[in-house]
């Protein structure tokens, strides 16, 4: 192939540039609307693309009282602890299911796959959580979703792709199963662990429904549930209901955009650090099922 023509490069640049704009402009609008003044929002009738009088009122409204800050810590804690526990359990189960000769391998695998097909539904889950005495406890947000069958299967497939000879030679050198897992298998599986870890982390970070069901005291609420009360609820001026206390708040749309920024930021910060694994991990199972 020869040098691309200037026109070709220009055209490609333009297309890529437009593509980037299509992604960035909405983000920009969200950011600008969250800091725009009420007059600007009123005159634009919605989203604002540029503000001359930036104000942090919306952020102040959302962050005042310390509820959101607290919820942010709760969410971070649940995400960190949950992801760690989930990874440990998933790796252990996937490894056991991937190596030949595990006791009761077939039935355990079937049971795992079964949960993929049949969901227990809300009320049986609630009753189980209640009878385990987990109501109003953070564990209720982690234990019921500790192991995700889909993630187990993906990880098992990856482990199975590691040549059996590696395991055997370590075995001959005197390594036990735990050592093989920690020293041979896991170092070879960084990509899949990163991806599955991200799946778990995002799920824990975004979960609000289980928190809504299982946590009675609102001071334990994670971020998404707290933010939800701002976004979902104060929408309807003019619904049959009244949330009169919002009269003095900044415009709703501005508050909502501030919330969007707050809830998106943490994930945005984490992403660059695991991105290199992510691109690789996505190929997992693409060739080998």
């Amino acid at each position: 192939m020869g040098e691309p023509s200037k026109l070709g490069v220009g055209a490609r640049g333009l297309v890529l540039g437009l593509g980037c704009l299509a992604v960035l402009v909405p983000f920009w609008a969200v950011l600008m609307t969250s800091i725009a003044s009420p007059e600007e929002i009123n005159s634009a009738g919605g989203f604002v693309l540029w503000t001359n009088e930036p104000t942090l009122d919306s952020y102040r409204a959302v962050l005042s009282g310390g509820i959101v800050t607290r919820a942010l810590l709760v969410s971070a804690g649940i995400t960190a602890v949950g992801t760690a526990l989930s990874l440990v359990s998933t790796i252990a189960l996937a490894y056991a299911l991937s190596r030949p000769g595990t006791l009761l391998q077939k039935p355990i695998l079937l049971m795992t796959v079964f949960t993929l097909l049949f969901n227990p539904g809300i009320i049986p889950m609630y009753l189980t959580v209640k009878q385990l005495g987990l109501l109003d406890s953070y564990l209720a947000l982690i234990l019921p979703v500790l192991v995700n069958a889909f993630n187990v299967i993906v990880m098992r497939a990856f482990f199975q792709g590691i040549p059996g000879e590696l395991r055997e030679s370590a075995y001959i050198d005197g390594a036990g199963e735990l050592r093989i897992l920690l020293r041979i298998v896991l170092p070879l599986s960084k990509a899949v662990v990163a991806v599955i870890g991200l799946f778990y982390a995002v799920a824990y970070w975004n979960a609000f429904f289980s928190a809504m069901l299982y946590l009675q005291s609102s001071e334990k609420w994670p971020l998404q549930l707290v933010l939800r009360t701002y976004v979902v609820n104060n929408t309807p001026i003019g619904a049959d209901q009244l949330s009169s206390n919002l009269e003095n708040l900044p415009p709703q749309i501005s508050v909502q955009m501030a919330i969007l920024v707050i809830s998106v930021l943490p994930i945005l910060f984490i992403y660059p650090f695991i991105q290199k694994h992510f691109a690789k991990g996505l190929m997992v199972g693409a060739v080998k099922g």
């Binding site: 009420p38 009123n42 005159s43 001026i237 003019g238 619904a239 049959d240 009244l242 949330s243 009269e247």
Partner: peptide, 22 residues
């Protein structure tokens, strides 16, 4: 609020809120 439309239909309870935002 922007005057783009002159009417909107809504629950009575929202009346006071319009003033807050306007």
């Amino acid at each position: 609020l922007a005057g783009t439309t002159s009417f909107t239909i809504g629950g009575y309870a929202g009346w006071g809120k319009f003033y807050g935002q306007a």
